[in-house]
Every structure is written in structure tokens, then in C-alpha cells.
Design a protein around this nucleic acid. Structure first.
Lengths: 233, 233
DNA sequence: TCGGTATTAACGTTAGACCATTAGGCATTC
DNA sequence: GAATGCCTAATGGTCTAACGTTAATACCGA
């Protein structure tokens, strides 16, 4: 007969209002919200309450707060880092092993290869060649890092020209997933042959050879998988 | 040469401290943090600052706050729904289109099929058949919903017996995709042939026929893609 | 013209007060 | 003795008013 009422927390009501404005694109990235003191007046609450609402929105990545003159709350343009951090959280929550993540990588990074071959522009390919050259040079100087490997795979993902896919690839190589304990043990092994496989892969893409590119990438990622499954013994 | 140092915002430091305690399991779900006033003393800051920190943690789904006697901040485990709801907003801001998400789905959900065929147990297959039967029945009663479609795809993902993949498939069908405006327009079209395609797909899996299963699923998802690209005209 | 300084608009933080909500104990009543 | 209702203490929610800190900009002197 009576349904529970929940009127609590004014700050939550403010969060909802502003979030809806953003969802419906009445506030778009780059827009600046009124200053805290103005928001106080408009909402008819104290500054503390407004600030708590802004904290929540900020924590959700919807706004960014800058101090100083001309500061205030700005609707953000989300970076792929933020997005992949969110995905990484999801994956972490499921408490998956590095082995499982690698399997997912194989599925995904092999699956996009036809798309990469089809859509990669000359500029994409030149970028990849340039990257590979740099990485091989770094390897010879003994300065090759996992970050470089991640950079390569991310750039390959970008060749699909699909923001959703870029984001996913990015999240596979983001800092959070790499922090999985098992992943670090694999790092030293990867550099040695990895960069040369990268180079061969790029050439296969340049020749629009899906089979060859797929075969190379499969070998490349499966080496990681093998190292990981060894660490579990 | 110098990395940006960000010492600002005490509340952020508090968030970091508490979050680390939770990450390292020194605080586990169900634990109660000290009251706001006690935290003030322990951190040596004012109550407002502590409260802002708690808001951020609450927004991240790490704690839950109850008022009244015996109330306070209690550690919780964020649900994947909470996290993907947060992601949905970011994706909206990043203006990833439903079309792009669908392309990513094609890559991923087709890519896992060999794994599904290889690993699906008899129980998995029986579950899928059962689901399909229910959905067809619901369809005939005119009660078929998008949630059911999502349920089917999620169950297929579970057949890989890989938590990372399950989580990713899940996030494709969670509130994330559903929040995209374009996706909703596609919903009515899907039910009619979709459920029968589901049934055929399950039988292809049961026969361990990768090619057939892939072909069916590709048609199935591409119909969605077609509907979506139409809405862009 | 250049470099430093003052201004100013904004967020960040504090302290102390009061309100609202809740669990649990206590007292009253039948 | 049991049920009901009140009281109290603990705790989060909000307010006010002030001061500190930061950063963009304008101004001014050499």
C-alpha cells in the first residue's frame, strides 16, 4: 500500500540534475559550469552540498575541476585512459588471471586484423614502420620497455578507425592490467623476438595479407600465453 | 625530466589511503570505517574534507554509507553493473557510436566461437537450449525483451569458461550498450528472427560446427548493424 | 619591450553549530 | 507478560562565515 520514499541527500539530487544535462548533451565537453557560489544560489543550498555533488561527478569522470581564476568545473572530454581504466576495473573485479586476459587478447587482437588490413591508410602503415624502427633501435640500446610494446599494439588498434575497438585494445595494454602480478614476469622474455615480429607484422599489413599477419600475431601473443602458463606451475 | 607532482587536495590523499586498504584486503566488505568525526582526528583534517573523500569512495562503489546510530561507512564490493553504468556515461561523452560498439561486438563474439565450440560442456549446451525454448515461448506471448537477448549472448560467453571473456561479453550487453540512444531503436526489429537464429546457433555449437555457428552469428549481429547504420541516415 | 607584481576570481580547507535519522533501551499501559 | 510508544545517544547531512591557495590577467616600472 505504501511505497518506500527516498528523498535523502540533496547533493545526490544535484548530481542527478547535472548528470542528466550531460547525458542529453545540453552540456557538452568543454562547457564550464557556473562557479560553486553561483550553483549554491541556483540550487538554494550551501557550498558544502554543491561541492559534494561536484566531487561525485568528478569521481565519475564527467567533470574536471580547475582552480584559480577562470577555473571551475568543466565537462570533460574523456581520454581513452579513463575509459580503459574503467574497463580494467571491471576485469579486475572478476578477479581474472593474466592467462585469461591473454586469451581474450588473442581473440580480440586477431579478430581485428581483417579490419586493420582493410582500413589501414598509408599514414597508418608509415607510423607503424616508424614505431618499429624506433623500438628496434631502443632494443639494441637495451632500453626496450613493455610500454613500447603496448604502444605498438595500441597503434595497430587505431588502424581500425573505430573508437570502441581502440578503447578495448587500449584497455588490454593499460597500466592497470599490466599490474597483474603474472604479467610482469613475462616482460623480460618478450622484448627479444617481439620487436622483430612487430616488424614482420607491419609488412604483412602493408601487403594486405590477412593470413600472414594473423599467423604472426598469433605466434606473438601465444608466446606470452606460454610464459604465463609456465609461471602457474 | 621532472614528473608532475600533484600534492593538492587532501581529500584525494585520504581516498588513496582508504582505497589501498581495501585493495590490499586490510579492509574487507562488511567492515565499518570509523565515524566521520573519528576520521577527522586520525587524518588531522576537518570533517568536510573527510566527507568529500567518503563521497568519492561511495561514488566508486567501494563503500556504502548508512545514517543513524550504528551507521557509518561500510566497505562493499562494487558490482559490475555499477562499474559499467559509470562506463556508459563516459562512452557517451567520448561519442562512441552504437555502430562502432556493434563492430566491436562482431569481432569479439565471432572470435570466441571456436573457443565456445571447443569448450562447451553438455550442461552448457542444455542450458542454451533451455534458454532458447523459453525465449521462443516468450516471443509467441509477445513478451520477448532485449534483456532476454542479452541473457542469451552472455550465456554463450560463459561457455568459454574464461572470466575475462565473460566479463567483456557481459559489458557489451549491459547498461552500456543499452544506454546508447541508437540501440534502443533497434530493439523492436531484433526479436522476430533473432530467437530462431539463436536456436540454430545452439544446434551448430552442439554439432561442433565452427563455420556454421560463425555464419549464423555474423548474420545475426550484422542485422543489428544494418539497422543502426540506417538510423544514421 | 620585458619582467615582475598586484589584482581577482575561483577552488580548498577549517571550525563550530544545528538538524535528521536510526538503533536500542526504558517506561508505560493493557 | 507483552505490546506499544517515548527517549537518548550516535551518526550522517547541512549550514554559515571565514581564511588559505592557486592561477590567469592586467598593470607598471625599468
Amino acid at each position: 500500500m505504501f511505497t518506500t520514499v527516498s528523498a535523502n541527500r540533496m547533493s545526490e539530487a544535484i548530481v542527478t540534475q547535472i548528470r542528466n544535462l550531460i547525458r542529453t548533451n545540453r552540456l557538452v565537453p568543454g562547457d564550464r559550469l557556473p562557479s560553486e557560489r553561483e550553483l549554491c544560489e541556483q540550487f538554494g543550498v550551501s557550498r558544502v552540498t554543491v561541492r559534494e555533488a561536484l566531487r561525485v561527478l568528478e569521481a565519475g569522470g564527467l567533470i574536471e575541476i580547475r582552480v584559480g581564476a577562470r577555473g571551475g568545473a568543466f565537462v570533460t572530454t574523456p581520454t581513452s585512459d579513463q575509459l580503459s581504466a574503467g574497463l580494467a576495473d571491471l576485469i579486475n573485479l572478476a578477479s581474472v588471471t593474466a592467462f585469461e586476459v591473454t586469451e581474450a587478447r588473442i581473440v580480440f587482437e586477431l579478430g581485428i586484423i581483417p579490419m586493420v588490413v582493410e582500413r589501414a591508410t598509408d599514414e597508418d602503415i608509415e607510423d607503424l614502420r616508424e614505431l618499429t624502427r624506433e623500438h628496434i633501435a631502443a632494443l639494441k640500446r637495451g632500453e626496450y620497455t613493455m610500454a613500447m610494446s603496448a604502444q605498438f599494439h595500441n597503434r595497430v588498434g587505431a588502424c581500425t578507425h573505430n573508437a570502441a575497438i581502440e578503447m578495448l585494445v587500449h584497455s588490454f595494454h593499460g597500466p592497470l592490467l599490466m599490474s597483474l602480478r603474472e604479467a610482469r614476469t613475462a616482460a623480460p622474455v618478450m622484448g627479444q623476438r617481439g620487436t622483430y615480429e612487430h616488424r614482420d607484422f607491419v609488412e604483412a599489413i602493408a601487403e594486405r595479407n590477412v593470413e600472414e599477419a594473423t599467423a604472426i600475431m598469433r605466434r606473438h601473443i601465444e608466446r606470452t600465453a606460454k610464459v604465463l602458463s609456465k609461471t602457474k606451475d
